[in-house]
């Protein structure tokens, strides 16, 4: 039985599993999903199976968790993932216009799991981000931006396109979705790969 992990990251996967006590390996499930996402930009079917095999649980158990949480993406994403909260408070404060602005500025269509034609962006609707007092809220590569207007949304997209990392309302910022996921997996930033990563 050969163990494998997307991107050949089997050693990092094992290191994550080793953080947890023997018999509790299953606790590594969520960090492993982040690890897979940091490599492929989403959790692929191969990743679901690889994680199941590593943790000796079924693929269904892995997929149940991966599909429950919206921070795991089950379809390929662009370099930057923009989530616009469209729950009640944000909607009342104009989130729909912000969402439309984001789609327009990035070129992402409104249907499916769209990625912009240049591969730079994914835009999706997000469930409550927990900052209703600063609605409408937007998440860019996991970092929150408060009280975003359509104009500000367009500006943020332009800055991302220019290679900047906009400063979020709080917490760290990440240059890409994959980088953010790597941090969420509890790993040091990966060394830059020659010519790699937009």
């Amino acid at each position: 039985m050969t163990e494998a992990f997307p991107g050949g990251a089997i050693e990092e996967a094992r290191a994550i599993i080793a953080r947890y006590p023997a018999g509790r390996e299953r606790s590594a499930l969520m960090p492993l999903l982040y690890l897979a996402q940091s490599i492929e930009g989403y959790v692929s079917r191969e990743a679901l199976r690889a994680i199941a095999a590593l943790l000796q649980i079924t693929t269904a158990e892995v997929e149940a968790v991966a599909s429950f949480y919206t921070m795991y993406r089950l379809h390929p994403t662009g370099t930057h993932v923009i989530g616009v909260c469209t729950n009640l408070a944000c909607k009342l404060r104009g989130a729909v216009a912000v969402l439309e602005a984001a789609r327009e500025a990035t070129g992402v269509g409104s249907s499916g799991h769209g990625v912009s034609p240049d591969g730079a962006f994914t835009v999706h609707e997000e469930e409550c981000l927990g900052v209703c007092d600063h609605a409408p809220a937007v998440q860019i590569n996991v970092a929150n931006h408060d009280e975003v207007t359509p104009e500000r949304m367009r500006e943020l997209v332009e800055r991302l396109r220019a290679g900047e990392v906009p400063t979020p309302a709080r917490g760290p910022a990440f240059a890409s979705f994959r980088e953010a996921c790597r941090a969420l997996a509890g790993l040091e930033p990966a060394p830059p790969t020659p010519g790699g990563g937009a």
Partner: peptide, 21 residues
């Protein structure tokens, strides 16, 4: 034999099995 699980959440929640299994 944990082949079936509840996938997704909220209004999209459903009983499912992993693809190909």
């Amino acid at each position: 034999d944990r082949f079936i699980e509840l996938f997704e959440r909220g209004a999209g929640e459903r009983v499912s099995i992993a693809a190909g299994e």
